[in-house]
């Protein structure tokens, strides 16, 4: 076991996959000598050179589209969007091309590629460096969407994503990059895409979360246990698409109550899909309204510290929402 933070885990995953398979390459803005604006690719340029760690112009459409072409050619590109907020020029490539390529070619062209994107707020990034825009991608058939919350999952899921035959959108909550260190198993550590994890067992209600919300939900669960005697089960979805329905529904069967938490705004958010799944297929086990706790309905995270605090979901808001649901 090695202790590392999420950023180190991501870097380690890319390094190991590049070493294992010379078809794996990294491309994006400032990923080369600088090692990425967050340092995710630090050291890879020196180790693998420009032809495998490629600084691109500021052209997100090109990053996604050329990665798709490279995947057609037989490579395994890992494309980095510097911030998830800047992915929109690449939206045409991701939605029109990358997600549909296998289906539209009747299975003859697959795109084994990963698009990594730092997302989320809480880092004074305001409207355009804080977005949680996963719902655009979870609603796009043909993509897989992953959002890890621990170093071990970040590493294991990224390695699995690189090896996956289909395109994976890999969401990295930037607030978690250096938030904490934790054990990551040694060796070729893989976490399968499509598998959620019960991060904390409980009997009174289930909290469904992903990314940074895992940390917040676990902290909230400790408070609930200590102050209220409420035992919350925390389920880290880890993969948003495909959703691990069995683990979600199994948890609801145990607890009878579901709180779905995410930082993105509520309306049409990914939580709606989780909530609907529970409402439809877990109905007989429910002992309270399926509840969503989500970011406010404003177009982005406002900048001033107080405004950002108002926006962000943290342990206190989760405790409040869980108390109301537990009391139902």
């Amino acid at each position: 076991m090695a202790e590392m933070n999420i950023l180190e885990a991501i870097r380690s995953a890319m390094d190991e996959e590049m070493e294992r398979d010379d078809r794996v390459m990294v491309l994006g803005e400032d990923v080369g000598k600088k090692g990425g604006v967050f340092g995710a690719t630090d050291g890879l340029f020196a180790k693998y050179g420009e032809k495998r760690v490629l600084d691109t112009p500021l052209t997100e459409g090109m990053i996604a589209g050329a990665a798709a072409g490279a995947a057609i050619y037989g490579l395994r590109p890992i494309a980095e969007m510097q911030f998830a907020d800047f992915v929109y020029p690449a939206f045409n490539q991701i939605v029109s091309e990358i997600s549909r390529m296998r289906y539209r070619s009747n299975g003859t062209f697959g795109l084994p590629m990963v698009i990594r994107m730092p997302y989320g707020g809480g880092v004074h990034g305001a409207l355009y460096h804080s977005q949680s825009n996963e719902a655009y991608f979870t609603s796009t058939v043909g993509l897989k969407v992953v959002a890890p919350g621990t170093p071990a999952d970040a590493k294991g899921l990224l390695k699995a994503s690189v090896r996956d035959p289909d395109p994976v959108m890999f969401f990295e909550h930037k607030k978690t990059y250096r938030l904490f260190k934790a054990d990551v198993p040694d060796g070729d550590h893989l976490v399968p895409i499509g598998s959620a994890e019960v991060a904390r067992p409980g009997k009174d209600l289930s909290i469904f979360c992903y990314g940074y919300m895992r940390t917040c939900a676990l902290e909230a669960a400790e408070t609930l246990a200590r102050e209220d005697g409420v035992e919350a089960e925390v389920v880290d979805l880890r993969t948003l698409r495909p959703l691990d329905r069995a683990t979600v529904l199994g948890s609801v069967e145990r607890t009878g109550k579901a709180l779905v938490v995410h930082e993105a705004n509520r309306f049409g958010g990914f939580g709606a899909e989780v909530a609907a799944t529970i409402a439809q297929d877990g109905f007989e086990h429910l002992d309270g309204p399926v509840t969503r706790l989500a970011g406010p309905e404003v177009p982005g995270v406002p900048y001033h510290h107080d405004l950002e605090e108002w926006f962000m979901i943290g342990p206190a808001k989760i405790v409040d929402a869980a108390r109301a649901l537990a009391a139902y």
């Binding site: 589209g65 072409g69 050619y73 091309e97």
Partner: peptide, 16 residues
Amino acid sequence: TQVLHAVGIAMGAWAR
């Protein structure tokens, strides 16, 4: 959109 795919293929050939 296909123009970028050709460039990506060419990038792959160049990289390899």
